[in-house]
């Protein structure tokens, strides 16, 4: 890879950005480890984009530091080889072809124009290489953004909401692509508000709200720690009799007729049903998911400040 960054760890320390009225980012600290996909989560307006832009020397921090492999972005001798970033879906001149867009960046990075064709192939855009950017679909634009970021074969990849506008196939492609890059030992930091997607994609998560850190850790830890015991979903033609048999547990009826039992296990519910002679049509243990944990963690933190 020939990159000057050998250990692509991202360290954000006390990062702060004040605009006139708003503390967009407020004393934020976290680390992002190489070899893993890290999801950067937060409600809209939490300060995700501002944080990423400060990390990349595009926005000046009011206080604090952000380093990649121990250096500030502006101090990297060859930034394209160290870090690739995708920040806006539509960041190309409308009248320029995809290939020429990439060639412009190749020239700025001192790379041969042939590298443009390589990254086009990498993201599957070769058939559209000579089409103008205004004719690209949202999914093609996202792919071109990733191709742009991959020009320098970077050790660290930073993506802001890359799943926006992708169809299911595109999202699957993105997931496989990012996970294979992480498996090569690269650092992948992906911001998103799509939690179900993040649960499939990320190894670690950093959750922020109102410009502050709320939680950081592996997806398993975060979900495991925050889950409030098990939830059991059960469906039966005789709900009243089952509720009577489950006297010690909290039961909630759902609109579709199913019951949600809190604070117990599927085994206990099944045995209670057997004793009461009630037939069960469905019996599922529901694990708390990232979305519920996320909503719990960020509840009460105003998204619009």
């Amino acid at each position: 890879m020939g990159s000057e960054i050998t250990n692509g760890e991202i360290v954000v320390s006390g990062l702060t950005k004040h605009y006139k009225q708003v503390k967009a980012v407020d004393g934020l600290s976290f680390t992002v480890k190489p070899g893993r996909v890290t999801g950067f989560l937060g409600p809209n307006g939490a300060g995700k984009t501002t944080t990423l832009r400060m990390l990349l020397n595009l926005v000046r921090p009011t206080a604090g530091t952000a380093t990649i492999g121990g250096r500030r972005y502006a101090d990297l001798a060859d930034p394209m080889a160290g870090v690739g970033a995708v920040l806006e879906a539509s960041s190309a001149h409308k009248g320029r072809t995809g290939r020429n867009h990439l060639r412009v960046i190749c020239a700025a990075a001192g790379l041969p124009a042939s590298r443009a064709d390589e990254v086009l192939a990498l993201v599957g855009l070769t058939p559209a290489a000579n089409r103008k950017f205004k004719g690209y679909s949202l999914g093609m634009r996202q792919r071109l953004g990733i191709a742009t970021a991959m020009i320098g074969d970077p050790q660290v990849l930073i993506l802001d909401e890359p799943a926006n506008g992708l169809d299911p196939e595109g999202i699957r492609w993105m997931r496989d692509f990012l996970q294979s890059l992480a498996a090569q030992g690269r650092t992948i930091l992906v911001s998103s508000h799509l939690l179900s997607e993040m649960e499939l994609l990320a190894d670690d998560v950093v959750i922020i709200a109102a410009g502050k850190l709320v939680a950081q850790g592996s997806v398993g830890d975060i979900v495991g720690n925050m889950g409030d015991g098990g939830l059991v979903r059960v469906r039966t033609p005789k709900p009243d009799e089952l509720i009577a048999a489950l006297d010690s547990a909290t039961v909630a009826r759902q609109d579709d007729g199913a019951l949600v039992v809190t604070g117990t296990t599927a085994a206990v519910v099944g045995e209670a049903a057997l004793r009461a002679g009630v037939a069960l049509h469905e019996l599922v243990t529901e694990r708390p998911d990232l979305e519920r944990v996320f909503l719990e963690l960020t509840a009460g933190k105003e998204a619009i400040r």
Binding site: L56, N57, L58, Y73, A74, L76, P79, M80, V83, A85, L87, E88, S90, S91, A92, H93, K94, I105, A108, A109, T148
Partner: peptide, 18 residues
Amino acid sequence: TNEFYHQTATTTFLATPH
């Protein structure tokens, strides 16, 4: 102005932070 109109300033300054 093209860099701002077409939102390419980000890409440009990522490639060249100076």
